[in-house]
């Protein structure tokens, strides 16, 4: 089984978000980048399934410029076998999907795993697009993934419950908790990651269909109004008469 795991390079979850003075670009200064937390589920699950089968390969793929390589190496240290970086600044979700579809087709991967969504652009788009581009099913978001031969059984989260879905390879799935316990690299992994192959390929495809015009931060809160704990019922009156939300 050939697994392709797509990882996005995103600001660490503790990042205070800020933008350049013209609000046109994200301010990267001093920001630590990590593997998108949801993509860690995809990566770990692919490694687990490969280990359980006793054969197969896990390839990680990132669409990004050279500064994403530390996180690609981290994915190799966690246990992927090799990596591909499509050398381009990811312009939008469709652009990224085209790159992933091209790599997936070229390498004839059986299982293409992604995270539920990126925590920077929050698109929840790329997996659906890749499925259509390749003409294969997409299951998103998946909470559970098992493989028996060429058939996968997945649990797909829906609002208020879940669906049990079966698909045959090849397919795309986007992963989220509680699929597995994401692994962290160990010393041996870090050592071997240095020599694992990382191939850099050029971008393909059409220009992006969306452009960010401007960023903005949410409005600041006015400040908290404190209510005495002894008099907690007063809060309910304020919520009705002042805030008018109940």
């Amino acid at each position: 089984m050939k697994f392709l795991v797509c990882i996005s390079n995103v600001p660490d979850t503790t990042t205070k978000i800020s933008f350049t003075p013209d609000n046109k670009e994200f301010n990267k200064a001093g920001v630590q980048f990590v593997i998108n937390p949801w993509d860690e589920y995809a990566l770990t699950r692919a490694i687990e399934l490969k280990e359980a089968a006793g054969s197969g390969t896990v390839t990680v793929l990132n669409v990004g410029e050279a500064d994403t390589e530390p996180n690609i190496r981290k994915a190799l240290a966690i246990g992927a076998d090799d990596a591909i970086r499509v050398n381009a600044a990811p312009q939008d979700a469709y652009f990224v999907a085209e790159q992933i579809a091209a790599v997936a087709k070229e390498g004839a991967y059986d299982v293409i795993l992604m995270g539920k969504e990126s925590i920077d652009y929050n698109g929840f788009q790329v997996h659906g697009m890749v499925g259509v581009l390749l003409g294969i099913p997409t299951v998103a978001p998946a909470m559970k993934l098992d493989l028996a031969g060429n058939t996968a059984t997945l649990e797909r989260e829906i609002e208020g419950g879940k669906e049990i879905v079966q698909v045959n390879t090849p397919f795309v799935a986007s992963c989220q908790q509680p699929m597995c316990e994401p692994r962290i690299p160990n010393m041996r992994g870090i050592m071997t990651a240095r020599t694992k192959p990382l191939k850099v390929v050029p971008a393909v495809g059409e220009p992006a269909r969306t452009q960010v015009a401007e960023f903005a931060l949410p409005p600041k809160k006015q400040g908290v109004k404190l209510i005495d704990a002894e008099n907690a019922g007063e809060l309910i009156k304020l919520l009705r008469n002042e805030a008018k939300v109940i």
């Binding site: 600001p11 990042t15 205070k16 978000i17 933008f19 994200f26 925590i119 920077d120 652009y121 929050n122 269909r209 969306t210 452009q211 960010v212 015009a213 401007e214 960023f215 903005a216 931060l217 949410p218």
Partner: peptide, 12 residues
């Protein structure tokens, strides 16, 4: 965008 930490104006 940025998981609730910001907004972006996007041209379609």
């Amino acid at each position: 965008a940025f998981s609730g930490k910001a907004f972006s104006d996007v041209v379609l």
